[in-house]
């Protein structure tokens, strides 16, 4: 009874959110899994259980390998997005940390794109990344043309091989500032004493950063990678507003939407579950890691 008194009120307070989570997150994940194992391919409803057939079809029997193509697109997008955002985020944080003037101003400038929704920035980037070159050029290509830098003109996202790399540019632009904020907090969290101690030991600036400061930033870098990584996996709105749904730039999240519109519930559910697993591969090790770190504290 005493123990119930101890945790009872807490549990009671948590119970509404626990129930809501159980029903609307975990319950629906279970439901989606069930649909993905059925043959509910049209508005008629399900006729039965087909095991993993939908998953198998996605990887081996999809028309024109549409699903693996969307995975390839996602891979290119994610790589460019992660590397780009981490690079610029770290660079800006480093520059600001070195104590330039007007830090507050620059911090706001870099962070601000994050406040814009992907839909709004996508509309602008759709115009910026106009694929026409030469006299008809618009957007960035026109700027390059005007500067006589014609060799920089690109077909952007309409390039069949590397189009997804340009698609990642707006995402890099939007989230570099966020990564910068994370790193800046990391820099500021390092005690001054450590820097002083390194200076006393006669460490050069390079050694100071290489051996003292950067190792302390590993947890921050990991958090940033996880946050950006799971955003990238679920990328939908940016691509919908730049190219619209189409083969060239299709990623799994867009494919789910397209499949749902054609009432192929089983296939849409199967893609969603694959997407969930992909995100889980990124998230779960991170959760285990933070759990351990917090316990050891």
């Amino acid at each position: 009874m005493r123990r119930l008194r101890h945790w009872g009120p807490g549990l009671l307070l948590l119970s509404p959110s626990l129930i809501l989570l159980a029903v609307f997150v975990y319950g629906l994940i279970a439901w989606t899994t069930k649909v993905s194992l059925s043959d509910e391919h049209n508005a008629l409803g399900s006729k039965g259980f087909v095991g993993l057939e939908n998953y198998q079809n996605l990887f081996t029997n999809d028309i024109q390998d549409r699903f693996t193509h969307s995975l390839k697109n996602l891979l290119i997008f994610t790589l460019v997005f992660l590397v780009g955002a981490m690079f610029f985020g770290l660079l800006w944080a480093f520059l600001l940390e070195r104590g330039i003037r007007g830090e507050g101003f620059f911090r706001t400038v870099y962070l601000f794109p994050m406040a814009v929704s992907f839909i709004a920035s996508g509309v602008v980037w759709r115009w910026l990344m106009n694929p026409l070159k030469g006299d008809d050029a618009g957007g960035l290509n026109a700027v390059f043309g005007g500067l006589h830098l014609d060799f920089l003109q690109s077909t952007w996202w309409t390039n069949p091989d590397w189009g997804m790399a340009s698609m990642a540019m707006p995402a890099v632009w939007q989230l570099s500032g966020y990564v910068m904020a994370l790193f800046l907090a990391g820099f500021r969290g390092i005690p001054q004493e450590l820097r002083e101690a390194a200076a006393m030991d006669g460490a050069s600036t390079y050694r100071l950063y290489r051996n003292v400061i950067f190792p302390q930033l590993t947890p921050v870098a990991l958090s940033a990678l996880i946050i950006l990584g799971h955003m990238s996996m679920k990328m939908f709105d940016l691509i919908m507003s730049i190219s619209g749904p189409q083969w060239l730039t299709e990623v799994p999240a867009v494919y789910v939407w397209q499949t749902l519109l054609t009432s192929d519930y089983a296939k849409a559910a199967a893609i969603s579950i694959v997407l969930l697993l992909l995100v889980a591969i990124v998230i779960v090790p991170y959760l285990i890691y933070t759990n351990r770190v917090e316990k050891s504290r």
Binding site: H41, N42, I63, Q64, R66, H69, Q246, W247, L248, E250, Q258, T259, L261, T262, S263, D264
Partner: peptide, 15 residues
Amino acid sequence: CSQGWQGAANSALGA
């Protein structure tokens, strides 16, 4: 054609 067929045809033409 049905909506599913239409989606598949659009995707094929896009490719």
